[in-house]
Amino acid sequence: MTDAGAAALPRRWQSAKIVRIVQRTARIKSYFFDLPEPFAYQAGQHVDVRLTAPDGYRAMRSYSIASGLGGAGPLELAIERLDDGEVSPFFHDVAEVGDEIELRGPLGGHFVWSPADGGPLLLIGGGSGVVPLMSMLRELHSSGAPVPAALLLSARTWDEALFRDELIALERELGSFALAFALTREPPRRPEDYGRRADMAMVSEVMARLPALPRHVFVCGSNAFVGTAADGVVAAGVPATSVRTERYGA
């Protein structure tokens, strides 16, 4: 396990300007930020975002970095709207291009992968949990490293699969990348996809599309999703120490 990147610098808050907003799915938008103090990061890391009300009240949340390329170009966050939430509806309903948002990063030195870490790489994401995995795949793509990878992405529907078209294009471009969508509320669209919730059998089938047992496994999503998927990976024979998880909440 390589866990570099935990440089001993304090990560300062900075005011980042929203330069672009892209509607990715009905409930997820990408926000692209220009940073006054850009930083290099590893795929899988996150930033903390904080919003301040006129009376000084603050709300802080973590968002994974979606962009690859370790720091060049604007920073992309992909935020899913939770209707009764506090911060994500602010982004969806209020935030506009040109707004300044306070954030700091990069944070987290465990759920990280870089092409030098090699593979095979197994990625499992539920909903917006695919965000840090997308960063890894973008990094893999731009590095040209010959690392075999597989992604199992669980989403309610075909249209709610975040980064779907980019992932399908990646599968075509990268010779050694296997992609499977698990749609929980629709029948599958492609022969290699599934029309049910992720389970142990599905995890081992996707794993079998790799040329060898995965050396690095990353699982990200809601707590329940991560629990099931990580147990499935271990049951399929991967040592628990190769499996890293990130849980977004209940």
Binding site: A53, P54, Y57, E86, V94, I101, E102
Partner: peptide
């Protein structure tokens, strides 16, 4: 300093002074 358009959906839920900053 304040974020444009952000008012805060809820208080910290804390009337006790027992919730640390940012929580």
């Amino acid at each position: 300093m304040a974020t444009r358009g952000f008012t805060g959906r809820r208080s910290t839920g804390d009337e006790t002074g027992r919730v640390p900053p940012g929580q």
